[in-house]
């Protein structure tokens, strides 16, 4: 944690020097950016747009991970399903994000369903691939154990399946979050009247770099926070039994 904070601090130092050296409105200083953030906080615009974006991230993430987990496990466990769904999966994996977004907006309309759906569909194939790997790697020995000991389905899910899939889920959740919050901004920029992505577009139109920074920075900060206080501890927790004796 100490080193992480130091490295973060270094970013600000470099930024400060760069701003001082260039003296251009194209690179506002950290102080100017903070002032702008405070202003946007007071007006309520920043919390509102940030909340909209986070809500879209959360919705798309939950949809993609739950669908991806279900489909991935089905494909990993069943050869027929795997063969049937595999071409679709490859298609989805290679479909450019922009194509999905534009098509969703055109077919479904410029609304929240299309926005969240487009983000979820972009994340979905990665989640499927990761969970399919996990399902293929399930150790049959533990399945035999569960059968001979006649473990009820809930116990099997909880004590036999979930712990084996958890590392794959964690890895997929982590790469998934970073993908989702990149795409969510594009989706907002193209077809939503609010959110961080929308504000980015406004800042771009006005060539207002301080505004751009004022929205980008808190967004990145929230993402880092989620990574450090949710995703990484979860990853550590699900693999704790590998390293820890008691």
């Amino acid at each position: 944690m100490k080193w992480r904070l130091a490295s973060l601090l270094l970013v600000f130092v470099v930024w400060q020097f760069a701003a001082m050296a260039t003296q251009s409105h194209l690179l506002p200083s950290p102080a100017a950016t903070l002032a702008r953030i405070a202003q946007e906080m007071r007006s309520g615009a920043l919390p509102f747009n940030l909340a909209m974006t986070l809500a879209r991230v959360a919705a798309a993430f939950v949809i993609a991970m739950s669908l991806g987990t279900a489909i991935g496990i089905a494909m990993g466990r069943n050869q027929v399903i795997d063969r049937l769904a595999d071409p679709w999966l490859i298609l989805l994996l290679n479909l450019p994000a922009l194509v999905v977004i534009v098509l969703f907006y055109i077919w479904i309309g410029l609304n929240e369903v299309a926005a969240v759906g487009a983000v979820a569909v972009n994340k979905l194939p990665n989640a499927i691939v990761a969970m399919r790997e996990g399902a293929r790697a399930l150790e049959p020995h533990y399945d035999e154990l569960a059968r001979v000991y006649r473990m009820p389905l809930t116990a099997r899910l909880r004590h036999v399946l979930a712990p084996q899939l958890a590392p794959y889920f964690a890895a997929s959740a982590r790469s998934g979050l970073s993908l989702v919050w990149k795409i969510v901004l594009v989706v907002e920029l193209l077809g939503r009247p609010n959110g961080i992505g929308f504000q980015m577009n406004v800042a771009f139109q006005l060539f207002d770099i301080a505004l751009l920074f004022a929205y980008a920075l808190p967004f990145v900060a929230v993402m880092l926070l989620i990574e450090f206080i949710l995703v990484q501890p979860y990853e550590r927790r699900v693999s704790a039994w590998r390293h820890r004796a008691a």
Partner: peptide, 8 residues
């Protein structure tokens, strides 16, 4: 022994 390694 086939104990579940992720449970005590």
């Amino acid at each position: 022994p086939r104990l579940l390694p992720w449970r005590s």
